[in-house]
Design a protein around this nucleic acid. Structure first.
Lengths: 306, 306
DNA sequence: TCAAAAGTGTTATCCTTACACCCATGT
DNA sequence: ACATGGGTGTAAGGATAACACTTTTGA
């Protein structure tokens, strides 16, 4: 229990920077889309968060609205000189207007890497290869208990039978595919990989992306973070499209609107947008005050009133 | 965006090990209750999680049921030799039977450190000093906007007016007290600290404890992790007492039971416990199968059925 | 007999889900 | 006129909160 003999390790920061443009969720990449941006941990900073923020803003010229630590892990691939590499990953959200969008090739649609996560237009093409691959993997186990277990995990993650995704399990899905050897990151010697299973990234970066997606999808349900991705004023349908892009699902229009309105998250600007293809839509803005007014924590315990 | 010049840093792991005994939430401490256990990050391990698990089990002889990474931070206090200390904190849950409980002084009631978090017997004594201290702090700001802001934050965190705690804000509460200079960790030169505001810990450890409490309180609502803290068989009331200990709140008995039963989380063992002081209670056990059967993710988006 | 806790039943209310329909604009 | 999206209303079902009450033990 002593802390005397800690080993020095190389530490770097990895950023998953997210924006939504043209109804697609995008992530900032480097190295021709192969990696997530990463940088050294600098000793001068007051805090990790502040260090990441200043580093990202210096490098990308994007103001970061929201930052959240994702996960810290010891990188399997990059030990050097006896020491070990530690990577601290962060999720950062930036406004649509600041990301140059589809024009800037560094901002890539994240479903390019994880195509099975996009169910907005029904079951994605990747599902065929996934079902086949996971079935083979489950069947390959000698122990019948393991076989049943693998089948159950596959069903929980991908819901093959009722064809309805649980968006929040993005990380578990990637990890299952990794474990089943269906993605190239799992090992270079595995041979043929189905091209419908997305483009790989270097290091553990695709895993980190999956972590970020899962976290963001969970968070939009109980904290008003989507607004960090929206411009100052927007229509409710525009907001819905952004949430759909992140969640990878289509939402029920009327109920979505009710949900937003009833929570008092937005207010009308008084203007309308006529560029929507139909009846002009009211433009609204996020009510920043709600962050002050309310505490935003889910109540699921039957509290006794004493 | 290069990773060439990463600085080496000292890395250690900090564990918040939690158990519930005698209806109290307990945390394993060292150094006569002043610190949380911590140890060096070892390069040999496959993963951080595995490293922590083996290290903790070697040191404490407690099997760890559940482990979750909490947060990674750069420690303000412990820079050495130009490098910087990185601390990776973990939450670990262990069963009541394995912790020797109240007999072992190293397992301390966590409300000893954060007494304002325990509302099971009504508003805790600390609230008086907190309300006074935060009011003074808010009033001390020159800018009226800052004053209003501070008052609002205090009200959100502690709900002075409607006397009803939001358990999940444990971290925010500690941070507010820290910022207001009401806890000694905020700075050694601040002078008198109210003794009802709990016992301090070394380094940032009280802050880490608050992080663990907040995370665990949030988690018990949507994942069946409480069972990691329970013995093999228990009564529903026993379970309720454990949740109440963690949440720092009293729960509504009937509705709590309905919640547990309706989710199919437990099954009867067929035995009863006669040591409960009243009518013998049925003993139940956790249905481990539910972890396989269900996915446990909160649905708050109005998904469209296509 | 009484205290203490187990356990059952019922009701009002709110939130979620789903469905049906009308409105305003551009082509 | 019609396609497209904006916007309103409402009814059914389920979950939650709150209440009152009976049962079974040990002291």
């Amino acid at each position: 229990m002593s802390i005397e003999d800690t080993n020095p390790a190389a530490v770097d920061l990895i950023a998953v920077l997210v924006a939504v443009t043209d109804e697609e969720p995008r992530v900032l990449t480097i190295a021709d889309g192969k990696d997530l941006p990463s940088g050294p941990f600098e000793s001068g900073q007051r805090s990790l968060q502040a260090g990441l923020r200043s580093w990202v803003e210096r490098q990308t010229h994007h103001p970061l609205g929201y930052i959240e630590q994702l996960y810290t892990f010891a990188d399997r691939d990059r030990r050097r000189g006896g020491g070990r590499a530690i990577s601290i990953s962060y999720l950062g959200l930036t406004r649509e207007a600041h990301a140059r969008g589809a024009q800037d090739p560094a901002w890539r649609n994240w479903y390019r890497y994880l195509p099975w996560e996009d169910w907005r237009d029904g079951p994605p093409a990747a599902m065929a290869a996934i079902e086949k691959g996971l079935q083979a993997w489950a069947g390959a186990a000698d122990d019948p208990v393991v076989r049943r277990d693998r089948k159950q995990r596959a069903e929980i993650c991908f819901s093959f039978t009722d064809l309805h995704l649980n968006e929040e399990l993005a990380l578990q899905r990637y990890e299952l595919l990794y474990e089943a050897g269906l993605v190239p990151e799992a090992g270079p010697a595995k041979g043929n990989f189905d091209p419908t299973l997305g483009e790989p990234m270097g290091h553990d970066h695709r895993r980190i992306l999956a972590t970020a997606i899962a976290r963001l999808r969970a968070k939009i349900k109980y904290r008003p973070v989507v607004f960090e991705l929206m411009p100052d004023s927007f229509t409710l349908f525009h907001l819905q499209r952004a949430v759909e892009a992140l969640a990878g699902l289509r939402l029920h229009k009327q109920n979505f609107r009710r949900l937003i309105e009833q929570q008092g998250l937005v207010e009308e600007t008084g203007k309308v947008s006529t560029e929507t293809g139909g009846r002009p839509a009211k433009l609204v803005r996020f009510r920043r005050e709600v962050l002050q007014e309310r505490a935003f924590a889910g109540t699921k315990l039957p509290v006794a009133r004493i």
